[in-house]
Amino acid sequence: MSAPAARRVEPVAEVPISVTVNARAVEAVVPARQLLADFLRDDLRLTGTHVGCEQGICGACTINLDGEPVRSCIMLAAQVDGSSITTVEGLASEGLSPLQQAFKDNHGLQCGFCTPGFLMTLATVDPDEYPGTDGIREAISGNLCRCTGYGGILQAVRTAWNRVEDG
């Protein structure tokens, strides 16, 4: 190859990152292997992001990363350098957002452990991409709930998304 020699990149055990979390700028040095969920929970004390499986299946740890819902248990903290994150703690500046209120009003939660993951998925996706109740089911299919059987959750989302057409 004729290009000049590549910049030398040194693998490290401790990684400096800059990230925006709930509109707050955070600078940190994280262990290379630290999971993003653990960084949020242990280092930033944002324990509303729950860890249910650590293998990207249950959805409890879902956060908003640069506008997309992602699973924070299968990302490394090091990977979010330069990104912007919202967690459940950042959903409302005070009180409850309309979505959160709809969950409360429609008994959309029981034990509450999976709830932040549902909220972060729903708060991040575009409702228009998920029409009708079937659309809501599709939107939340990556989040497992073991208490509600989803009835209260569907009703909460229909309320929050102004859908009365079916259900």
Binding site: V88, A92, L96, Q100, K104, H107, P116
Partner: peptide, 18 residues
Amino acid sequence: TRRQDDALLSGRGAYVAD
């Protein structure tokens, strides 16, 4: 309506792991 819900919905409900 349930009294824990405000805390649970805003990520303030502390489970053992928290």
